[in-house]
Every structure is written in structure tokens, then in C-alpha cells.
Design a protein around this nucleic acid. Structure first.
Ligand SMILES: [Mn+2]
Ligand SMILES: [Mn+2]
Ligand SMILES: [Zn+2]
Ligand SMILES: [Zn+2]
Lengths: 136, 136
DNA sequence: ATCACCTCTGTAATGATTACAATTTTATAA
DNA sequence: TTATAAAATTGTAATCATTACAGAGGTGAT
């Protein structure tokens, strides 16, 4: 589906700026931050304001177009809204997707409450860094 | 076990300030923030500095005396280090403990990496708020 | 053209955390 | 005890992501 149609279908008026931000997320599945998105778009959108990136992502979040991941005092954005977990490397800071069924982590103990969001996060040293990093 | 002995056994020199902070956590299992701890202790420890609370919690964390929970841009501290999940209410902000086996959320998909920490967090409206809060 | 409404912008404010240098306390040696 | 080194604590300033806010710009209806 075209970006404009998809945004419209989700209740977001597809302005040029919004489409560019959406398409950035669509093309970059590495969980970018506001800083990443702003830095990547500002050359081709010279008037872009960082506040607009914040506002747009907030809007996307309300319309469930993206998922927000809070990792160590910074928000990352994920266009993939199907449930999955994340592993972040303490060394290279890469965020890996980890397949996980939502039903697997939502059990009777928590269903007494009304769940709006579930976040499952692992931290450690990724496989790649283990192979290349030496003990100091 | 007495506080001083326990801290010593974990490699932390049991200064008076450190013991007071540890005992606050031991007596308050509601996942307090630095602000909570500082606010609660400053009357009886008039010279206490907020920086000391930060430093002490960082030390406790390194020595695995406490667990740190990052929830919406704020660190909360948990004296209970056995694995369990947390539910935070978007309305009253209470953090509930949710029993959960660590093995249940650590599977082969993530074990390719070296895991140092796992955090499973739910957000939503707690049972208590559902019963008392009306739709606006 | 006028108006209302939405989008976007830039700057200032906020708030949690960290950096850092100075001071106080504690431990150790002479 | 006194001297001295090390550790713990303090207060202030800096950092950094995020939000608040007020104004500018654009669009579409009347
Ligand atoms: Mn993801
Ligand atoms: Mn807990
Ligand atoms: Zn890595
Ligand atoms: Zn509640």
C-alpha cells in the first residue's frame, strides 16, 4: 500500500513531512531514535525541526503506526508492531529483534490488570561482540 | 542477617549512610526512585546529598544488591533480586510485582547472545483503577 | 479576501542523571 | 598522638532527552 493511503487509513493526514518520517521508519528496521531520524532527513528536508520529529512520532504512536521502545533513557521507534522482544548489546548498542509470542509472556498473574503494552527486553553482550571483543 | 554483615558480604563497606539507604529499600518494596529515597531520608540524615543516593545505588547495583527498573525516564530500585516481571499503572503509577519464571522468557532465540539482564514490563490500567475510575 | 484550522518551527524550560572538584570522614603508618 | 593516604560524601555545574509554548506558515471553506 502507498504511504499516503496507509497513513490516511490510520487516521493521520499524510503531509509531506509525515510521509518522509514514515518512509524512513519503513526503510530502517534498526530501531532508530529521534536523533537518527532527524539526522537522516535534515539534508533533504532542510527546514525540518526536531520538534516535528518528536510530534510526528507521538502522533504515529497514538495511531498505533509505530511501537516505542524505551532503552536506557532513550526512545527508539519500531515500525514492526507485531509483538516481539528485543536484545540490546551493552557493547555495540545494537538492538536485535527476538521472536516471542505475546501469549507466552501474558499469563493469569497479570491479567487481573488491563494491559495496554508489554515490553520484554534483554541486555548483555551480543554474539558478534563476544567473538570479536577480548577480555581486557 | 544484619545489614552491616550483609553489605560486607557483598563487598560494600557498610557506612552509616549506605546502611540507611539499604534499610530503606529493605523496608519499602514499592520500587522507590532516587527522589523517594532521598526525600524519605533527608530529615533524619540532614547532610545527605542526592548525589550520594545516586552513587550508593550505583554501587549496590554493581554488587547485585538491588535491581534497577527503568520505567518512563525514571529509575526505580527493587531489593528483590529474584526474577519477576512488573506491571505499572498508567493512571496511579503503582508498580506491581508479577511472578514470572526467568526460564519462561529466555529461549533459544536469545541465547545466541550473552544475557546479563532481562526486564519484562507491562503497562496499562491496574485492577484497582479500573474499579474506581469512570470513563470521562 | 477573510477566517478557522492544522502543521511546522525555534527557543526556552524541564527533569533525571552524571561529572567534577572540594570537603569530610575513616583507616593506616610513623 | 600526629601525619598521611584513601575512601566517602557533598554541592554545584553540566549534560541530554524530552516537552512546553508561542508564533509562523500553509490550506481549504465561505
Ligand atoms: Mn523490533
Ligand atoms: Mn519488583
Ligand atoms: Zn554487540
Ligand atoms: Zn492504577
Amino acid at each position: 500500500m502507498k504511504t499516503a493511503e496507509h497513513l490516511h487509513a490510520c487516521g493521520v493526514k499524510p503531509s509531506y513531512t509525515r510521509m518522509r518520517i514514515y518512509e524512513y521508519l519503513h526503510n530502517h528496521h534498526d530501531h532508530p531514535t529521534v536523533e537518527h531520524i532527524y539526522g537522516a532527513l535534515k539534508d533533504s528536508l532542510p527546514t525540518l525541526s526536531k520538534t516535528t520529529v518528536y510530534n510526528t512520532l507521538k502522533l504515529f504512536l497514538e495511531k498505533h503506526l509505530v511501537r516505542e521502545l524505551i532503552m536506557q533513557n532513550q526512545a527508539h521507534y519500531d515500525i514492526v508492531t507485531d509483538f516481539h522482544a528485543h536484545f540490546q548489546c551493552n557493547n555495540c548498542h545494537t538492538i536485535y529483534d527476538i521472536p516471542m509470542q505475546r501469549e507466552h509472556v501474558v499469563n493469569g498473574n497479570v491479567e487481573a490488570h488491563h494491559i495496554e503494552d508489554v515490553q520484554l527486553t534483554y541486555r548483555g553482550i551480543c554474539r558478534s561482540c563476544q567473538q570479536t571483543t577480548q577480555v581486557e
